[in-house]
C-alpha cells in the first residue's frame, strides 16, 4: 500500500471510499442533477485522452472550470444534446492517496472502467482510464476540487454524453 494511503486515519479513508462509491452510483443512476454536487464551486473537471495528458497538450474532450459549467453540461445532457439513450456502469478501483498537501487536500487517483449498454445491444467497454483527483473537506463533506479523467480509450465509440 502507498505510504500516504497507509498513514491516513481509517475513518478518513473510509469517508474517501464512500465519496468514490457515491459518485459512481450517482453517475450511473441517470439522475444527472446529482453530479455537480460532488464538486466544489470552483472545481476543475476534465475528460482528457491519455495522449494529450502525457504529451502536455492542454486540449480535453470536456473541460469545465466551475460547478456552474457542470450544471450547464447537465442541462445539455437533459435538454439539448440529441443522442441514443444508454445505460452506463462505472467500476472504480480503490482510491490511492498519493499525498496530502499543506492545506490538507488529498491528492488521489483510482482506475475506472465504464461499460455502456444501449437499449437493443450488448454491454461494451466504453471508456477506461484513471481519475486524478484533489479532494477537499467542505462543510458539506468531502468534495472534488479537481477530477481529471484521463482515458486510455482514445478512440471514442462515436460520442460521450454522460459524465464519466
Amino acid at each position: 500500500m502507498n505510504r500516504d494511503t497507509a498513514a491516513l486515519d481509517l475513518s478518513l479513508y473510509h469517508e474517501l471510499q464512500a465519496l468514490y462509491a457515491d459518485y459512481a452510483s450517482a453517475v450511473d443512476s441517470g439522475q444527472w442533477d446529482l453530479w455537480p454536487g460532488f464538486f466544489t464551486e470552483d472545481c476543475v473537471y476534465k475528460l482528457q485522452p491519455r495522449e494529450n495528458h502525457e504529451r502536455g497538450f492542454p486540449l480535453a474532450t470536456l473541460s469545465f472550470e466551475s460547478q456552474a459549467m457542470l450544471r450547464d453540461r447537465v442541462y445539455g445532457i437533459k435538454e439539448t444534446l440529441f443522442h441514443d439513450p444508454y445505460y452506463q456502469r462505472h467500476v472504480v478501483g480503490a482510491p490511492l492517496v498519493r499525498r496530502r498537501d499543506e492545506r490538507g487536500a488529498l491528492h488521489c487517483e483510482a482506475n475506472y472502467a465504464v461499460f455502456r449498454t444501449k437499449l437493443d445491444g450488448p454491454s461494451t467497454v466504453f471508456n477506461v482510464g484513471r481519475y486524478l483527483d484533489v479532494v477537499v473537506r467542505t462543510p458539506q463533506g468531502l468534495k472534488f476540487a479537481q477530477r481529471l479523467c484521463v482515458y486510455d480509450s482514445e478512440m471514442i465509440p462515436n460520442a460521450i454524453i454522460y459524465p464519466i
Binding site: 480535453a60 474532450t61 470536456l62 473541460s63 472550470e65 445539455g76 471514442i156
Partner: peptide
C-alpha cells in the same frame, strides 16, 4: 489559448454541438 480550449467544449466527440453529429450519422 484558454478561450479556444473553453470553446472546444462545443466540439468533438463530447461537444455540446458536435456530439450529436456523430449520432445522427450512425442512425
Amino acid at each position: 489559448t484558454q478561450r479556444r480550449l473553453r470553446q472546444a467544449n462545443l466540439f468533438g466527440p463530447g461537444g455540446f454541438v458536435s456530439a450529436d453529429d456523430g449520432e445522427v450519422i450512425e442512425f
